[in-house]
Design a protein around this nucleic acid. Structure first.
Length: 172
DNA sequence: TAGGCCATCTGGTCCT
DNA sequence: AGGACCAGATGGCCTA
């Protein structure tokens, strides 16, 4: 018979149960505080993550033209506007290339890098030729309708180099 | 007061 | 195991 068993055997069963109960309560409390501290840390990270996301959204807002200037677009408006804006800019480039072939020095410099971002990743991750951000967009060749999106800048581009009203019409 | 927007918390899932 | 990401819930603030 082990010495341990001998010593615990001297203890009344009721006291043993009480001791075990206290130990379990202590373990559960420890587990609870551990879970709690993990949750608090996770909350902190999540808050940080959302702050970074919002900062990126603010950066995006800052490069989008708004009318009037102090208008702050909501998140969804910012994304939809950016979608349309990119579409309009790429359309502008396309039309410009049709109208007057650029001098050799300008070939291959279609899209300037966005401020504060890596040009390569910007180009590779946001190709204007295959937009897909706006869920209700009708396709790559047209922006989302003005009903769905905050702003349809394509209209502002009509008349570019003497274009007829319909977008995509030949220049001459 | 209803509805829109937002920040935060939370639990689940995926990834490293 | 721990962190990142995601979506749902909740409550506060603001505006029509």
């Amino acid at each position: 018979m082990p010495a341990d068993a001998a010593s615990s055997g001297a203890e009344p069963p009721r006291e043993r149960r009480r001791r075990r109960g206290r130990a379990r309560a202590r373990t559960e409390a420890l587990l609870h505080t551990l879970k709690r501290s993990r949750r608090v840390k996770a909350n902190d990270r999540e808050r940080n993550r959302m702050h970074h996301l919002n900062a990126a959204l603010d950066e995006l807002r800052s490069v989008l033209p708004t009318f009037p200037d102090d208008t702050k677009l909501t998140k969804i408006e910012t994304l939809r506007f950016a979608y349309n804006y990119i579409w309009a800019l790429s359309e502008t480039l396309r039309l410009a290339e049709q109208c007057l072939p650029p001098p050799p020095a300008f070939r291959g410099a279609a899209a300037p890098p966005s401020p504060g971002s890596d040009a390569g990743s910007w180009l590779s991750s946001a190709s204007p030729s295959a937009p897909s951000l706006c869920a209700s967009a009708s396709g790559p060749s047209s922006p989302a309708t003005s009903e769905d999106c905050a702003y349809a800048p394509a209209d502002a581009l009509r008349g570019f180099c003497g274009l007829p009203a319909a977008p995509g019409a030949p220049c001459r």
